[in-house]
């Protein structure tokens, strides 16, 4: 019997409901802890994107596009990029004021602007990668429509 609802079977949907939040939180954790432990904005951003991709695989594209479409994705990527550029140029132009070296070691609020820049990178990578994914996937679907 063919499934009338978009997306995969009930089992996959239920599992996704449980895991997607965990994946998202783990991505945010990796991002925020980037300056004191392995990982960082890039890795965290990719994990955040994976949460959205998992949603899309399980529930179909409409569910996800309501939450985050290409327009919003581009906007977020642009904001992330601008933020990163602003933070980077602030540090580079006045290096004496913003030391990279942590005052307090192994704590969340250390290393000055470095942790802020990780957040900006995560925003840029997550949104940018998701837009790339959407562009590739949606283009294929359009081609399939043309064939029919």
């Amino acid at each position: 019997m063919k499934n009338k609802e978009p997306g995969m079977s009930l089992i996959v949907k239920t599992i996704t409901r449980f895991t997607v939040g965990l994946v998202l939180v783990y991505g945010i954790f990796i991002t925020l802890q980037g300056h004191v432990s392995p990982g960082g904005g890039f890795a965290g951003g990719i994990i955040i994107t994976l949460a959205f991709i998992q949603l899309m695989l399980a529930f179909g594209q409409d569910e996800v596009l309501r939450k985050l479409n290409q327009e919003k994705g581009l906007l977020l990527a642009g904001i992330g990029a601008i933020l990163f550029l602003v933070i980077a140029s602030r540090i580079f132009l006045k290096p004496q004021q913003h030391s990279f070296v942590a005052e307090k070691h192994f704590q969340l609020l250390s290393a000055g602007f470095l942790s802020l820049s990780e957040i900006a990178i995560a925003l840029m990578v997550a949104a940018g990668l998701f837009v790339i994914f959407l562009t590739l996937v949606l283009l294929i679907e359009e081609e399939e429509k043309e064939k029919k």
Binding site: L74, G78, A81, I82, L85
Partner: peptide
């Protein structure tokens, strides 16, 4: 670089 990002926004 800033111009490129602003243009995107």
């Amino acid at each position: 670089l800033g111009t490129a990002f602003l243009v995107t926004l």
